[in-house]
Nucleic acid binder design. Structure first.
Lengths: 243, 243
DNA sequence: TGGGTTTGCATCAATTTGATACAAACTTAT
DNA sequence: ATAAGTTTGTATCAAATTGATGCAAACCCA
């Protein structure tokens, strides 16, 4: 079994982290009319997990989440919000960590910091799918997008974390204009509606959706889009944040 | 300076707690048409703080919050909900703890567990004011209710925690029937309306409020109340949870 | 018995939401 | 060129919800 230098470096960082506290990120993206979540797949063990990490003693939990997000997606300035902290005593089977490290050639003793109890602060992020290059971490073969309806079994309580994140996102969509962050800078009304329909998982009436969005007064009409499609070209919108 | 046995016992418990994690409770009550928050006032130092505590290694954070709530109010089965986790690196002036302990005759070394960085998981509780006997803890002279508009300066970031709790409560009031928990088991429509007006901080039209509440279909009319007042006696309601 | 009060509810107006329709603007096929 | 087939933008009307006002009922007190 090979031992890896980066992993040793990571394990040695234990004392720099705030004990007992971890951060997990549910990174939402939107592509081809599907709501996606970014997942990591561990090397060797092939277990799936949310991108997560620990909090340095000299950073806030928000900063830690931002950092983890950046490490996983290569993007900064991302819409990121804390939504729940998961503090069950037994959040699932911690053997995964032992097994993962073992597969890398590190046999952790029972008292190792990585095998202690951690609570997890959950953050969800809304990113522009097209701007993101999923980046595996040192434990992962690959990071990839998964349709929200086709999430595999994840380690620990990560499936529950995703459920809660989605629930929160749906709630937020109602009274905060948060969805735009999942689209590129400019978008058509159709794209926006598809996004809403996907997140809320229900059909909306086109005319009424348009009326409601326009009435908010924050959509700026950029131009007609020449799509090359055989129909009237739609307007392209951008958010007018300073309105 | 006297040293106190209970405080020594508390300090010795350090190893039983999950490091870095604390819980703070914003306990809301409703009395004489005012929204109240339960605060503790420390002995000697006279600093004000939210009731809070630490999480035992063998309990969940929810259980810890429930326990702390019970210790402070003597009530179990309380509506309790986590609303935010406060994870700033510097959540305020940690000297209060050093000073408090010093005032009790304990000089803590810098590395003492109580002086380390803690994140705080915020819970808010909605309690029936009449059922609660505020109980000071070993550091506090007294626990008492404070009008939400007259909160004194609190230690650390506790003022911010209250603000966030109130914000969450207002949000929740809109789409969850959560307010009832602040009233006694039976109540009049007027009391319910006063509660809403106080939390939302705005006047509501009586007729419309009644219409809306009744339309929810969860209020059970118990009887007419003979208030002894010189007017038509109001109905008394109870929540029909199983509806 | 009448005055003062609050309660419960009806009523109507104003606003918001749901549903449908239709002309405009584009491409493609003839 | 023109007709057919799309989707888009918006108007329109019905239905539902919310805002505002009024009034009779039920109580106490004098």
């Amino acid at each position: 079994m090979p031992t890896s230098q980066p992993i040793k470096a990571f394990l040695d960082k234990g004392p720099e982290y705030l004990p007992s506290v971890s951060v997990d990120c549910v990174i939402f993206g939107f592509h081809e009319n599907q709501l996606k979540v970014l997942l990591l797949e561990f090397k060797h063990t092939k277990a799936f997990a949310l991108p997560g990490g620990f909090v340095f003693k000299e950073e806030s939990t928000d900063e830690a989440a931002t950092r983890i997000l950046w490490e996983r997606t290569g993007v900064k300035d991302i819409y990121l919000e804390q939504f729940h902290t998961f503090g069950e005593q037994n959040r699932g089977n911690w053997d995964v960590h032992k097994a993962t490290m073992s597969s890398h050639g590190f046999e952790l003793e029972v008292e190792h910091w990585l095998l202690q109890r951690f609570i997890s602060i959950g953050y969800y992020a809304l990113v522009d799918f097209s701007k993101v290059q999923p980046t595996p971490d040192i434990f992962s073969d690959l990071g990839d997008w998964y349709d929200i309806h086709q999430i595999p079994a994840l380690i620990l309580d990560h499936n529950m974390i995703i459920d809660k994140a989605l629930e929160t996102l749906r709630l937020m969509l109602d009274h905060k204009l948060v969805g735009f962050n999942l689209l590129s800078e400019t978008f058509t009304m159709n794209e926006l509606q598809s996004l809403y329909e996907t997140i809320l998982d229900k059909k909306l009436l086109r005319a009424n959706f348009q009326r409601k969005m326009l009435s908010l007064g924050i959509l700026e009409r950029v131009k007609k889009k020449f799509s090359g499609k055989a129909h009237k070209p739609p307007y392209v919108y951008r958010i007018n944040q300073n309105q």
